[in-house]
């Protein structure tokens, strides 16, 4: 089964060689609000090897002291598609809203909720952390199989 997605203008398309729509998490930090221009970013983590992309992909690298984040965007409409990070070799972070079946996505965790926009009410009982979550806790939530 392949999961497909693409950018706003349609020039960039991708498929993910995974079994089902991936679980997603939302990050409410200020950096993600700026990247997305929205209240939060929504991501899915997949093996980098599972992504096959076609179209005019442009690259933006953000280098800081301890890591390099390489963002891949549509060169035409500039929609962000996915990124890789030297701190997580082999994994890619997909901008989950670009998935074709985005309405079927589940959001299993919210992080950096301390900077959440105040109007946004998070669903009851969904795991959330005010800042960074313990890495193993988020990994456990993202590894959950669907449906339960």
């Amino acid at each position: 089964m392949t999961i497909a997605g693409g950018c706003r203008c349609g020039a960039v398309r991708y498929t993910l060689a995974i079994d089902a729509l991936p679980p997603t998490y939302a990050c409410h930090c200020h950096q993600c609000q700026r990247w997305s221009g929205s209240a939060f970013s929504q991501q899915a983590i997949v093996p980098e090897a599972a992504i096959a992309v076609t179209g005019p992909v442009a690259v933006y690298e953000k280098v800081t002291e301890d890591r390099t984040s390489t963002q891949r965007v549509c060169g035409t409409c500039h929609a962000r598609i996915y990124n890789v990070n030297t701190r997580r070799p082999g994994l890619a972070v997909v901008r989950a809203g670009t998935l074709d079946r985005s309405e079927e996505l589940e959001c299993v965790a919210h992080i950096f909720t301390a900077s959440k926009q105040r109007w946004l009410a998070l669903p009851e009982g969904v795991p959330q952390w005010p800042q960074a979550p313990p890495a193993e806790a988020l990994a456990a939530l993202l590894g959950a199989k669907r449906p339960r």
């Binding site: 965790a109 009982g125 969904v126 795991p127 959330q128 952390w129 005010p130 979550p133 806790a137 456990a140 939530l141």
Partner: peptide, 12 residues
């Protein structure tokens, strides 16, 4: 101060 469970579902 804050706290919660291991998975983050219950936070206080």
């Amino acid at each position: 101060v804050t706290g919660g469970c291991q998975c983050g579902r219950v936070r206080y």
